[in-house]
Design a protein around this nucleic acid. Structure first.
Lengths: 233, 233
DNA sequence: ATTCTTTGTAACAGTTCCGTAACAGGCAGC
DNA sequence: GCTGCCTGTTACGGAACTGTTACAAAGAAT
């Protein structure tokens, strides 16, 4: 699986269309593979790890429908999202397509914007399911997707900044962060904030954590900054 | 649960008949709703998602014929199969009934066996298409193909956007969706929509859900977005 | 102990964010 | 036409959050 740049296979027999699509998707930051026929598509699917397929309904020789069916039949490729492009929005086609296992439909003529939105959302569904991000440290559990924090199994409710702050600390627990560093990471764009503000937020975060834990979980390193560290080691 | 079990509404003013029918159909594995008058029937049709109606021809005040006409007139109920019960097999009645849109006729006195067969065949027409995809979470049941949502077995009626919105949330329950993400997934084609519009639709969805549930099912994560989450875990 | 520096925190004044009512346009059905 | 339903936008009030400050408390250095 490609981690940073998703690989998209575009299957379209009309060269100008293929070019247009490829270009626009490449701009969005995807790695594009092109195929002008069903055979070519199936070959590329075998040789590369494709994350998503955009498939024209009308293709010479092997139809888009058939390509989709083959993708679904193969164990290696059966979970790849397929977006089909159809010339007209014939309900009949749509039903057949969805039966075969196409994930989504885009009717020509379509806007690039729309197609990109579909691509994004279909990619995300896959990534979401596989990514169950949780961070843990000394009794603190942070579930990023669900945006929840527990300490010793007690729920802690944090405001946006507190959440980001704790997240930053938890990514490198035991590391000592200077106030400047925390400003960079948590506040990012807004650099016009006093360094003392960090102290205040650390205080607020501590207060929330202390409601459910009597151990001091955030350590002050005088003259340097803060770190997530109960001081047990 | 009344989602996989087809819901049948029996309309019959004679209590003993009503009881007999209800009992025999319940034995066959249907969920039965009873009405002794036309008004009652129409009310139940609004409040529950009925899959089939058994309708006595002779009813006080509103006749069976009229009830049938009303069912056909309403967009929400127009595809529900209606089986009419008539006292004598008067050709005239039958013709009028079929004109109005009754799907089938059973002449009194009838055998339970015969009626059950008719019920089965009339249900099959609709049901065969539906190998019912359903999503569930914390009392919410969503039947995707039939476009139905129940909360604690109470029907909830949602507009198209509300439905998609809830669907999106239910695919990854407890996950926090940003407004942009929801726009991508729910609106897809129409990206030029204000992010605040999401809030309004979340509000509308909440209102519908709250009619039948006093628990807040959609959580607001300030500064981030929304998630399906009753907050019970 | 005294002084100076650094940190904790309460309090206040914005500011931002969210829920919702109200309104207007679109569209389907009658 | 009218009517009713659905949708997108806006505006406003209230709630939650944030940044700053001032002062108290704690450590270091002398």
């Amino acid at each position: 699986m490609s981690v940073d740049k998703p690989n998209i296979l575009v299957v379209e027999d009309e060269p100008s269309q293929l070019e247009l699509l490829s270009y626009n998707l490449a701009v969005e930051g995807y790695e594009i593979f092109r195929a002008e026929s069903g055979e070519e598509a199936l070959l590329l699917l075998k040789e590369h790890s494709i994350d998503l397929v955009i498939l024209d309904w009308m293709l010479p020789e092997i139809s888009g429908l058939e390509v989709c069916r083959q993708i679904r039949r193969n164990k290696q490729t059966k979970d790849i999202p397929v977006i089909m492009l159809t010339a007209r929005g014939e309900e009949d086609d749509k039903v057949r397509g969805l039966d075969i296992g196409a994930n989504d439909f885009v009717v020509k003529p379509y806007s690039i914007k729309e197609l990109c939105a579909r691509v994004r959302s279909n990619l995300r569904i896959k990534y979401d399911l596989n990514t169950s991000d949780t961070l843990e440290f000394e009794g603190i559990t942070m579930d990023i997707k669900r945006h929840r924090v527990h300490v010793n199994n007690n729920k802690v409710s944090l405001g946006p900044i507190e959440f980001k702050l704790l997240h930053t600390l938890m990514v490198s627990p035991t590391k000592v962060f200077s106030r400047e560093e925390l400003l960079d990471r948590v506040w990012a764009s807004n650099i016009d904030v006093e360094t003392r503000t960090v102290d205040v937020h650390i205080g607020r975060l501590r207060k929330q954590l202390n409601i459910v834990s009597d151990i001091e979980l955030i350590r002050t390193v005088r003259g340097f900054g803060y770190s997530l560290d109960s001081g047990l080691n």
